[in-house]
Design a binder for these strands. Sequence first.
RNA 1: GGCGACAUAGCCAAGUGGUAAGGCAGAGGACUGCAAAUCCUUUAUCCCCCAGUUCAAAUCUGGGUGUCGCCUCCA
Length: 485
Amino acid sequence: MRIYNTLTRKKDEFIPREQGKVAIYVCGPTTYNYIHLGNARPLVFFDTVRRYFKYRGFNVLYVQNFTDIDDKIINRAREEGYDPLVLAERYIGEYYKDADALNVLRADVHPKVSGHITEIIELVKTLLDNGYAYAVDGDVYFNVRHFTGYGKLSGRTLEDMQAGARVEVDVRKIDPMDFALWKSAKPDEPAWESPWGKGRPGWHIECSAMALKYLGFNFDIHGGGFDLIFPHHENEIAQTEAATGQSFARYWMHNGFITVNQEKMSKSLGNFFLVRDILSKFAPEVVRFYLLGTHYRSPLDFDDEKLTSAQRGLERIKTSLRLLDEALAGREADDEARPDPLLVTRLEEIHIEFDKAMEDDFNTALAIGLMFDLAREVNSYLQRNDYPNLAERMAALQKARQMFAQYNCVLGIFKTSATGDILLENQETGNEGLVEDLLDLIIEIRQKARLKKDWSTADHLRDRLKKLGIALEDTPDGVRWKRLG
RNA sequence: GGCGACAUAGCCAAGUGGUAAGGCAGAGGACUGCAAAUCCUUUAUCCCCCAGUUCAAAUCUGGGUGUCGCCUCCA
């Protein structure tokens, strides 16, 4: 497996710290608002990475933090008249709603900063003892000049950074690039007792403390958005490696941005789209499918048309799944039957390609392309009548359905049953009984009209149903209906 | 100013030396009462421009143009 490593600026062969195990830390959101699509990309992508490792038989330990103490939270809380921690907690709850909708699996651990103050203080103490940090008026800063590797992740030197530095010069700092490990508390801010007085952690130290606690040093993969490379991840590396004398993480993965009109979607530019607003217009599987349709390191431009295009594409795959289910419905699988090689040889080729795509730096775009190939092979095969016998045909189709389910386990597009079978929307809820019965009735009436060649009645019913979001399809074997959109 | 990324058909997008995946949209055909869905065929003599390396380049090197990002909170 090859992974593009920001640290080495190339694709490196993945060698786990421990055989058969992989430890991953992903920087989660600062919870002062609902998440937007830009936040969703790393969630969905790293969730897919995690799923792929699992699919390959790895034992995955996946940690994603919540930053629940931060200036923005404090400001927002002040505006709304809440306690900052209460506000943060509320948005953590909202985060789960959006993440669950997008089929993002819960992390093994979702640590919060507020629950790890002790660990953070310990880490800061270590850095002070080591001489990598200094305290001034209740603040503690990390001394970047002291850490020789500073800049190794972002690929620039302190001189580079200062040449165009836009940081305000704080005379109390030894170097302008020094960053806060601990901030003294202003009145009305959440604060904790520390050896340096009441205060709260700086932004970067939390991830170091929590990653070390749950994953230890030298763990496998640390992920986040491109914009975290500097300063966040650079500082994490500096702190952690200065404190432990050990490597922090070995593979650093960064996803590209979601853009709007080619510009970065960000909270500060105000051009962001909330996940829940998008989900009010598009199904979650469409959003996930769209996000994974582009390689994670490339920018991805967002607008409704692109989602609509994704929706239509996904419909193709759904159709193929429906056709498969229809063909297999009510038939017992015969485990003895040899799958028809006519279909299965192609399936095997696709399967090899799928693994190759994912092995090569998680090329989900290629993997999705292969799902389309799979769909075409299936659809095409279903139209043929020259199969050897029914049992072999069914075995081959069964195999195809398993492949769809497997790939879906990795890509996480469709909701699944407990056994991992793909659930299409018609099957999702148990509350559909009446709708189905009514549709059966309407279809029956229409069929009678069609027998009498009363095309205007038949077409009228079909048109009206279409306006209600139900599409009818007449086939030689009867009428099929599905929900649109 | 420093550092970096990207530029592939109408649109989206994969492809890091061997002669352009896939999707959306479009065209033609099969099927259909008509549709829809599906299948088949078709849509880039060519991958921003120029020069170079090579038997061979979208893929490597140099130069140029354009777009974006980081250097400040941001996924």
